[in-house]
C-alpha cells in the first residue's frame, strides 16, 4: 500500500470523525466549513444552528457607530438558562462568522471580543441552549472599514 493512499484514507477518516463530533467542537477542531462560508445563512447551517428563534435574552453591547472598523468592541451576554455556546457573525464581512465559543461547567455565557468590520452591518449573535438555537441582532455603523488594512 503506498503511503500517499494511506495518508488520504487517514485524513478521510479524521474528517468523518470531525463531522460526527462537530456539534460538540472537539479540542482544537476548527469548523472550516462554517468559517469559510460567505453568507451568514451558510455559516449557521454549518454550525447546526440554521433555524434560530429571536430572543430578547441575548444582549449585544457595542457602539452604535464604530469610528474604526479594525477594532469594534462587541460584548455578548446570554441570559437564556443553559446556554452552551455563542456565535458572533458580522453579516456583511467577506466571511461573516467571527467567533464561536463553547461554555462548559464553570463558565458564564459571556464574552467580549474586538472584531473587524468591513462596513456598516448587522451583528448577529446565535446562542445554543438546551439543543435549541436563539438569536439577536444589532446594527453597527462603521465609518472607516477595517478588513482591507
Amino acid at each position: 500500500m503506498n503511503d500517499q493512499r494511506r495518508g488520504t484514507l487517514r485524513l478521510a477518516g479524521a474528517l468523518a470523525l470531525a463531522a460526527l463530533l462537530k456539534p460538540f467542537a472537539a479540542l482544537a477542531a476548527w469548523n472550516q466549513a462554517a468559517f469559510a462560508s460567505k453568507s451568514s445563512a451558510d455559516a449557521l447551517k454549518s454550525l447546526g444552528t440554521a433555524s434560530a428563534e429571536s430572543s430578547g435574552q441575548i444582549l449585544i453591547e457595542a457602539p452604535q457607530i464604530a469610528e474604526n472598523g479594525a477594532v469594534v468592541p462587541i460584548e455578548v451576554t446570554s441570559n437564556i438558562p443553559g446556554t452552551t455556546s455563542l456565535a458572533v457573525l458580522v453579516e456583511k464581512n467577506p466571511y461573516p462568522l467571527v467567533a464561536k465559543f463553547d461554555f462548559k461547567e464553570g463558565a458564564l455565557p459571556f464574552v467580549k471580543i474586538n472584531a473587524k468590520m468591513g462596513e456598516t452591518s448587522d451583528v448577529r449573535v446565535v446562542a445554543m441552549a438546551g439543543g435549541k438555537a436563539y438569536q439577536a441582532t444589532k446594527e453597527i455603523k462603521v465609518t472607516i472599514g477595517g478588513c482591507g488594512g
Partner: peptide, 27 residues
Amino acid sequence: VNGKTVIEGEISQAVSRNPVFSFRLKG
C-alpha cells in the same frame, strides 16, 4: 481553571489584531 477546560473558542481572521478577550467564570 485549575486544569479543567471551561471555555473553548474558535475564531476567524475577522478578530482584531492583538486580540483582547473578556470572559466570566462562575464563582
